[in-house]
Computed example of a mutant assay.
Amino acid sequence: MEVCPVEVAVSVLGGTWKLTVVKHLLEGTLRFGELSKLLAGANRKTLTRQLRELEEDGIVHREVYPEVPPKVEYSLTELGQSLAPVVEVMNEWGAVYGKQSTA
């Protein structure tokens, strides 16, 4: 049986904050605290889990620096960068939908 490509995409990106994380990381490397502030509605446990899942799926790169206190930075891999057009279209669609649903 053939696997639906949309199902594959949703299985990788279908998390409450995953696409929003990708959207912010498209702007550049961020530390956990910076991401946490940008995603004010996300609790730390959920954000950590979703970042780990994105890392496991090859979308996000996690760089740990041997410092005290620990410094961890997140950036997009080449595969993650390839999501830019998807995020852009979803952002545009969301803006249009948001205007229509409040009208």
Results as ranks from 00 to 15, higher is better:
P5K: 04
V10S: 04
S11C: 01
L13E: 01
K18A: 15
K18H: 06
K18E: 09
L19A: 06
V21G: 09
V21C: 07
V22C: 09
K23H: 12
H24L: 13
L25W: 05
L25K: 04
L26M: 10
R31P: 08
R31F: 03
F32M: 02
F32W: 05
F32Q: 07
L35M: 06
S36F: 10
K37T: 13
K37H: 09
A40V: 12
G41L: 13
N43F: 08
L47H: 07
T48H: 09
Q50N: 02
L51E: 02
R52M: 07
R52H: 11
L54W: 04
E56W: 06
R62T: 12
Y65S: 07
P66F: 08
P66N: 13
P66V: 00
V68T: 08
K71T: 12
S75N: 10
L76F: 02
L79C: 00
L79G: 01
L79F: 06
G80S: 00
G80C: 01
S82N: 10
S82M: 09
P85V: 04
V86M: 09
V89Q: 12
M90S: 04
M90Y: 12
N91Q: 14
A95G: 05
A95M: 10
Y97E: 13
Y97I: 04
G98Y: 14
K99G: 08
Q100S: 02
Q100Y: 13
S101F: 11
